[in-house]
Computed example of a mutant assay.
Amino acid sequence: MCDKINLNAMGGHIVKILEARFITHDVKRFKVEKPEGYDFIPGQATVISLNLPDWKDEIRPFSFTNLREAKYLEFMIKIYDDHNGVTKMLGKANADDELIIHDVFGAIHYDKPGVFIAAGSGITPLISIFRDLYNQNKLRGNRLIYVNKTMDDVIMGEELFKMLKKDFVNVLTRQNVIGYREKRIDRNYLIEHIIDFSQYFYVCGPDDFVKEITTILLDLGAKPKSLIFEI
């Protein structure tokens, strides 16, 4: 996604980190200052870099997870500690350190009730959407199928269950735990668990996952205009 972004055409804002802490073994939540007049639509993202001499131009895309009306911005970022990249540096960042955020972008947005299918950190753009709908008492009629390798990888599981209740389906691919389904999200799974393929679908996750799931959904009768995703 980063190679499609023209950094020179985007306005940059230096913001201070207000709070930084790990919420899973490899996902860190950041609350940062919100520039005056800065706004986004739930589901959108921005590109971020660290305000350090060697890292200012190393931008990466991250989705907003806070409510739009909040006085701060929030990001939940998966930290890859096995190579010397941006997220490894973010893993070391703490309150009072500075980031550079740019303009908003993103194709993920809420249109009508439907089925949300997310994998791993692909849940992050959906968190802002769910929080916004829940805050407006408009979440009913939506369903989330969320796939992770193990229970330890689930991001914001308790809050998602609180908001969606029985419409929150957890799927684990490498662990069998009571209350979680150990399966792979494939054609057979979708046929077994989805009755109406004419409804809206929102798909988020790694590129290969999104391509595979959207291809299957279209083959099963989903309408292109009712399929919302971003590669």
Rank of each mutant, 00 (worst) to 15 (best):
Y110R: 12
D111T: 15
K112H: 15
K112Y: 14
K112P: 10
K112V: 11
V115W: 08
F116E: 01
F116V: 05
F116C: 01
I117F: 02
A119P: 08
A119G: 07
G120R: 06
S121V: 12
S121P: 13
G122A: 00
I123H: 06
T124G: 04
P125V: 06
P125Q: 05
L126D: 01
I127Q: 08
I127E: 09
S128Y: 07
S128G: 01
S128W: 09
I129K: 06
I129H: 10
F130E: 04
F130H: 05
F130P: 08
R131G: 00
R131A: 04
D132W: 07
D132P: 03
D132I: 00
L133C: 06
Y134N: 15
N135E: 11
N137C: 07
N137P: 05
L139T: 03
L139D: 07
L139K: 05
R140D: 15
N142Q: 05
N142A: 00
R143M: 11
R143T: 13
L144A: 09
L144Q: 05
L144V: 07
Y146M: 00
V147G: 03
V147I: 10
N148W: 09
N148R: 10
T150P: 00
M151N: 14
M151R: 14
M151H: 11
D152Y: 12
D153K: 11
V154M: 08
I155L: 13
I155W: 01
G157T: 06
E158Q: 14
E159W: 05
E159G: 03
E159K: 07
L160S: 11
L160F: 07
F161P: 03
F161M: 15
K162M: 11
M163L: 09
L164N: 10
L164R: 12
L164Q: 07
K165M: 03
K165L: 04
K166E: 15
D167A: 00
D167P: 01
F168G: 12
V169A: 00
V169R: 07
N170S: 11
V171P: 11
V171H: 03
V171K: 05
V177D: 02
V177I: 02
V177R: 09
V177S: 09
I178G: 09
I178M: 11
G179A: 08
Y180T: 11
Y180W: 13
K183I: 14
K183V: 15
R184H: 14
I185A: 07
I185F: 00
I185R: 14
D186Q: 04
R187G: 00
E192Q: 14
E192R: 11
H193G: 01
I195D: 15
D196C: 02
F197Q: 09
F197N: 03
S198W: 07
Q199G: 11
Q199M: 08
Y200M: 12
Y200G: 14
Y202T: 06
C204W: 00
C204N: 04
G205E: 04
D207E: 15
D208T: 09
D208F: 08
